[in-house]
Design a protein around this nucleic acid. Sequence first.
DNA 1: CGGTGGGACGATAGCGTCCCACCGGTGCTCTATT
Length: 478
Amino acid sequence: MDYLRQNLKKWFGFDDFRPGQSEVLAALNQGKNTFGMLPTGTGKTLIYQLFGLMIKKPVVIISPLISLMQDQVDRMRYLGSKNTVAITSNLNFIEKKRILKNLSKYSYIYISPEMISQSDILESFKKLDIGLFVIDEAHCIVQWGTDFRPEYLNLHRIINYLNNPKVLMLTATASKKVRYEIVDKLGLHNVKNIVKSTNRSNIMLSVEYCDDSNDKNNKLLSLVNKLRSPGIIYFSSKKMANMVTIFLRKEAHLRVEAYHSDLNNENRYRIQHQFMDNQIDVICATSAFGMGIDKNNIRYVIHYHMPSNIESYVQEMGRAGRDMDESISIILYQKNDEILQYNLLMDNIPDDDMISFYYQNYNKLDNNDEQTKLLKYYYDNGYSKDDVTNIFQARRLEQKDSLAEMLSYVLNNHCRRKKLLTHFDEAFDDHNEYCCDGNHTKLNLQASNLIRSNNDKIIYKDNYDWHSIINSLFNKLH
DNA sequence: CGGTGGGACGATAGCGTCCCACCGGTGCTCTATT
């Protein structure tokens, strides 16, 4: 402990660790594969950064998003680690070749599961004496691995091929079951778990039951008019996110933007940064918006559509109140809302006919839709038709169970916090009028600081030079 | 499921009504040819 703290002081100038940091470092120091489930804002980056400095060996970080890698590289360089790099498709051929040739000169290397799966790239990593293999946002293995980004499943094989470097898995939300599944999919044993509470006591939890879509829109408008900004509204449809954006701009007179996968990089970057800078009051987003968003004063998260599992819900609503001030999470639920989720989940998983068809015609197919690409992955990696059929059957059941659990949270009329924390194997019995609207409790909104007052002024910042910011982004990318 | 867009149909000519089919999230990679 003293040794770790000395190093913290030496390299970062801090006197004390944040909760969880030193436990994770101690486990790594003992040579253990480690799972760190630590709330956002704990400083997960510092853990592997400090560990890298202590062992003086390269740290490889698997990351799900290019934008996340870019942010991290910028931050690390800003903090003084100049020997940091992200290997992504943004690099041109020459840059990529140069970086791979000099890989051992870098201390921190960010890369996606897809990129490290390429054999020539993997060979370059093989020559490296890797000090730590980090899997950032490790829940992606379970959330995305089976039916969206199958290369996440390669990590098991990759870790073996790289002679089993020490592995650190990091995430903010994973139930015991999900943690077990992540470790299992990576083929690891004897993992040391450092798990901190997922309870966010400053976020009130509630569900508003709506009669129909009109009622839902009216309730949404009245909430948005009443609550202090900034806020996020989550949708499961890009079209609805766009429509409600226009609706709120007109009816609530707020600065509202939509955020989803149809936006180009430039607009994504602009909206994220305007939101960070309090130039946007409300974001109408799909699940594309979230990872890497580190804004501390979000006052509310509203779900226009319920999420498809508890993990996603906790991640999304947990973006509120990072400053520890009072915040609120509201799900607007209309009867049968879960059907939309159900169809989205099931449409994504190839059915038995599709699998048979693919296995009969794999050499004749030249269409490149998502399901064909997915099946191609399994086919190329030697899975038989029966293997794949079983995998997707199990996946379907799993997704249905998760959705059912989410629905039971929504329809539950006891303490919502207790229900959520039970999912993460935590006990809770301190229900009160600032906790949730379960147990026939009326939330004490008026006494809280959540309601807008007449004195609230929206601060505009007109002198922002977006052109230079966007230009600097593009210079970084090219 | 709920919303929507398109086509068919009917009664009588410019349009209302009904039914059916369809849709709905998340991102990495690069396919570089004369």
